[in-house]
């Protein structure tokens, strides 16, 4: 049986499912069908009835509501212990998680308790000669690899954002059966004392409403080169954005960062200049209607999501592009 551990975002925003939960559930449905085994799902902490009803409408064999006062706030110690108890009780052959920041925090600990390794950030999985083969990326997406795990199981795997489609989820006319599971826990097991989540100062720039975004990455080399891309943004009437290292270095303000720890944007056009295309960047801009990439490395992962690309040195390509845009517009 495959067990999918779902995630909610109740502590941060109004209660809602983390959208990667649905993608992981879709992965679970597909793998369970391939393996010819059942699918179960678990959610930790207190959930409201609307969220649970939404979950029960999906095609799932059994839902576990893992409840305990000590699970109300997420902690790595609390979640690892609760999941461990559930896995020991229901003995799944595969446990799937969405590869969220929270899962990064506790799933490796959980896998270790079963002397297993979390196969993290998986992009696909298939059955090969009766055994599961998991595919994950290496070198920030520059290479892929087939991973196998030994037979004793359970296997633990986390699914990369966007790897499976939430709209491929099968629903069910009858509500999936659910059951409360109460793990045995006491306060002394939990060493982390979490405080309430917060956001830094309000954002002055709202990239989500921009029609065109020109985004700059580490290929720009130095802060003094930023005007090269500013020119292009001006010519296109675009907002300027950046990958994380540019904001980390203080070359552009944090509020212009696109990606999993920055903003998620979906403009008409996104021009990525000197950005390699690591998954944490891609999740923030994959939804753009047209993606243009400029990179000197023909194998950069950004070209996998680009509609149009120029392979070349940005310091030659971008000024040429500014000229061509100005010509086309006049």
């Amino acid at each position: 049986m495959i067990l999918v551990i779902l995630e909610q975002q109740s502590e941060r925003q109004n209660s809602q499912w983390h959208r990667m939960s649905w993608e992981t559930l879709a992965a679970g449905q597909q793998l369970a069908a391939q393996l010819g085994v059942g699918l179960q799902a678990a959610v930790l902490g207190k959930s409201n009835s609307a969220l649970l009803a939404e979950l029960a409408s999906k095609k799932i064999g059994h839902i576990w509501n893992v409840e305990h006062d000590l699970l109300e706030r997420y902690t790595a110690d609390g979640y690892a212990s609760a999941c461990q108890q559930l896995v020991e009780k229901i003995k799944p052959s595969v446990v799937l998680f969405p590869h969220t920041y929270q899962v990064r925090d506790f799933a490796p600990k959980l896998a270790t308790r079963f002397s297993q390794v979390l196969i993290s950030d998986v992009i696909s999985a298939r059955l090969d000669a009766g055994a599961l083969v998991y595919v994950r990326q290496f070198f920030q997406g520059k290479l892929s690899g087939d991973i196998r795990a030994n037979g004793t199981g359970p296997h633990f795997a986390s699914i990369q954002a966007g790897a499976f489609r939430a709209d491929a989820l099968e629903t069910s006319a009858t509500a999936a059966p659910s059951e409360v599971f109460s793990p045995v826990m006491d306060a002394t097991m939990i060493r982390q004392r979490p405080e309430a989540p917060f956001r830094e100062a309000a954002r002055a720039v709202d990239l989500t409403t921009a029609e065109i975004i020109v985004s700059v990455g580490r290929g720009i080399k130095e802060q003094s080169n930023i005007p090269v891309v500013e020119e292009l943004a001006k010519a296109l009437g675009a907002e300027l954005a950046a990958s994380r290292p540019i904001c980390d270095a203080g070359w552009l303000p944090m509020e212009r960062q696109v990606g999993s720890s920055g903003q998620t944007v979906a403009p008409k056009m996104y021009v990525a200049v000197g950005i390699s295309g690591a998954i944490q960047h891609l999740v923030g801009m994959k939804g753009a209607k047209t993606i243009v990439a400029i990179n000197k490395d023909a194998n950069a992962p950004i070209f996998e999501v680009a509609d149009y690309g120029i392979v070349g040195d940005l310091f030659e390509v971008v000024p040429a592009l500014v000229d061509a845009v100005n010509k086309a517009k006049s």
Binding site: F138, L143, G145, E304, I310, D323
Partner: peptide, 30 residues
């Protein structure tokens, strides 16, 4: 307990149009 069987270049999921060659021509084509 887990191991890598083989590594390979990623499978491309999207058809992209890539322009190479001199910057000016590529920019005009784009």
């Amino acid at each position: 307990v887990v191991w890598t069987d083989k590594i390979y270049a990623p499978h491309k999921s999207k058809q992209s149009q890539i322009f190479e060659g001199d910057a000016k021509t590529a920019a005009t084509q784009l």
